[in-house]
Amino acid sequence: NITNLCPFDEVFNATRFASVYAWNRKRISNCVADYSVLYNFAPFFAFKCYGVSPTKLNDLCFTNVYADSFVIRGNEVSQIAPGQTGNIADYNYKLPDDFTGCVIAWNSNKLDSKVGGNYNYLYRLFRKSNLKPFERDISTEIYQAGNKPCNGVAGFNCYFPLRSYGFRPTYGVGHQPYRVVVLSFELLHAPATVCGPKKST
């Protein structure tokens, strides 16, 4: 009989979020998941679920829940969905086509923008091939755009693969920082350890 609540607040209220190319993952297990707390949290810009209804989450049990978190621009949030393409979905964070879970995003301009620009948040701009679902690539190898080998030196046709967002408070909404948490639900042939409040007695 599990009684402790799942530590969703640790994920959602973290002081610093990860850059999207180096997205953070927390495994959540052996706890009671009260999703209504999240669902009623006012400032969400997006709360979209795939393969599961957000209002039914509290009735369900899962083997594991993974909480992935990172920061992207407002106009990139739409790429955090199954079957998407674009710089983020291709080179930074890719969801599987059969994704079961929820994508939760909110504007973090007050936290993550600075006058003069916040350059701490990076994304991958160049990559030889697209990421596989949930693949994480933190390499900083110089990207070779031409035929000539770069030998690890940036220059003509040789690019550092990461780019900084440089968030400023005055940017338009599409270019403002958004914090994103992706909850993915794993249902294995194993005992369920993460259940909603109704199922955990």
Rank of each mutant, 00 (worst) to 15 (best):
I2V: 14
I2W: 12
I2F: 14
I2L: 14
T3I: 09
T3F: 09
N4R: 15
L5M: 12
L5N: 14
C6Y: 06
P7I: 08
P7G: 10
P7F: 08
P7Q: 12
F8K: 04
F8V: 05
F8Y: 08
D9R: 12
V11Q: 04
V11A: 04
F12Q: 04
F12T: 04
T15Y: 07
F17C: 04
F17G: 04
F17A: 05
A18Y: 08
A18R: 07
S19W: 03
S19K: 04
S19G: 06
W23M: 02
R25P: 00
R25N: 02
K26F: 08
K26N: 08
R27T: 13
R27K: 15
I28D: 01
I28Y: 15
S29I: 08
C31H: 06
V32K: 11
V32R: 11
A33D: 06
D34H: 07
Y35N: 08
S36D: 13
S36K: 12
L38W: 09
L38A: 07
L38V: 12
N40R: 15
N40H: 13
F41D: 08
F41Y: 15
A42D: 08
P43K: 10
P43S: 09
F44E: 13
F44K: 14
F45P: 13
F45L: 13
A46T: 15
A46R: 14
A46F: 10
F47G: 07
F47V: 12
K48Q: 10
K48G: 04
K48N: 13
C49H: 03
Y50F: 10
Y50Q: 03
Y50P: 00
G51C: 04
V52M: 09
P54A: 15
P54F: 15
K56G: 12
L57K: 06
N58E: 12
N58H: 11
D59T: 13
L60H: 10
L60T: 10
C61D: 10
C61A: 11
D68M: 04
S69I: 03
S69Y: 07
S69D: 03
F70W: 01
F70M: 05
V71Q: 01
V71W: 02
I72E: 00
I72N: 01
R73L: 04
R73E: 07
R73W: 00
N75G: 15
N75H: 15
N75D: 15
N75W: 15
E76G: 05
E76C: 05
S78G: 13
Q79Y: 04
I80C: 01
I80D: 00
A81E: 08
P82I: 05
P82V: 05
Q84W: 07
Q84K: 13
Q84D: 03
T85D: 07
T85F: 08
G86P: 01
G86F: 03
G86R: 04
G86V: 02
N87G: 10
N87Q: 12
N87C: 14
I88F: 03
I88G: 02
I88M: 05
I88L: 05
I88K: 03
A89T: 00
D90S: 12
D90V: 05
Y91T: 04
N92Q: 01
N92G: 03
Y93Q: 00
Y93R: 02
Y93A: 01
Y93P: 00
K94V: 03
K94Y: 03
P96D: 06
P96W: 03
P96Q: 05
D98A: 10
F99Q: 01
T100H: 10
C102I: 07
V103N: 00
V103C: 01
V103P: 00
I104P: 00
I104E: 00
I104A: 08
A105D: 00
A105H: 09
W106H: 04
S108M: 04
S108I: 01
N109E: 02
N109C: 05
N109Y: 05
K110P: 07
K110D: 10
L111E: 13
L111N: 11
S113P: 01
S113V: 01
K114T: 12
K114Y: 11
V115R: 11
G117T: 03
G117R: 03
N118K: 05
Y119N: 10
N120P: 05
N120A: 13
L122S: 13
L122K: 13
Y123S: 15
Y123H: 12
L125Q: 10
F126S: 03
R127E: 00
R127Y: 03
R127M: 03
K128Y: 10
S129N: 13
S129I: 10
S129V: 12
N130S: 14
N130L: 12
N130T: 14
L131R: 02
K132Q: 13
E135A: 09
R136A: 07
R136K: 12
D137T: 03
D137V: 04
S139R: 10
T140P: 10
T140F: 10
T140Y: 10
T140C: 09
E141N: 14
E141G: 12
E141K: 10
E141A: 11
E141D: 14
E141R: 09
I142H: 06
Y143R: 02
Y143N: 02
Q144V: 09
Q144L: 04
A145V: 07
G146H: 05
G146N: 04
N147V: 06
N147T: 06
N147K: 06
K148R: 12
K148Y: 12
K148M: 11
P149D: 14
P149Y: 10
C150M: 00
G152L: 07
G152F: 08
V153Y: 12
V153N: 14
G155L: 04
G155M: 06
F156P: 11
F156D: 03
F156L: 06
F156R: 06
N157T: 01
N157G: 04
N157Q: 02
C158Q: 02
C158V: 02
Y159W: 04
Y159Q: 00
Y159G: 00
Y159E: 00
F160L: 12
P161H: 03
P161F: 03
P161K: 04
P161S: 05
P161E: 03
L162T: 06
R163I: 15
R163D: 07
R163T: 15
S164T: 09
S164R: 07
Y165D: 02
Y165M: 05
Y165W: 03
G166H: 05
G166Q: 07
G166R: 04
G166V: 03
F167T: 00
P169H: 06
P169T: 06
T170Q: 07
T170S: 06
Y171E: 00
Y171I: 00
Y171K: 00
G172S: 00
V173I: 14
G174I: 04
Q176M: 06
Q176R: 04
P177N: 01
Y178Q: 06
R179W: 00
R179Y: 00
V180D: 00
V180R: 02
V182S: 03
L183V: 07
L183M: 09
F185N: 04
F185M: 10
E186S: 11
E186L: 07
E186G: 11
L187E: 12
L187R: 13
P191Q: 14
A192M: 13
A192H: 14
A192F: 13
T193C: 09
V194Y: 11
V194K: 12
C195F: 10
C195E: 12
C195D: 11
G196C: 10
G196L: 10
P197S: 15
K198H: 14
K198T: 14
K198D: 13
K199P: 12
K199R: 14
S200P: 14
S200N: 14
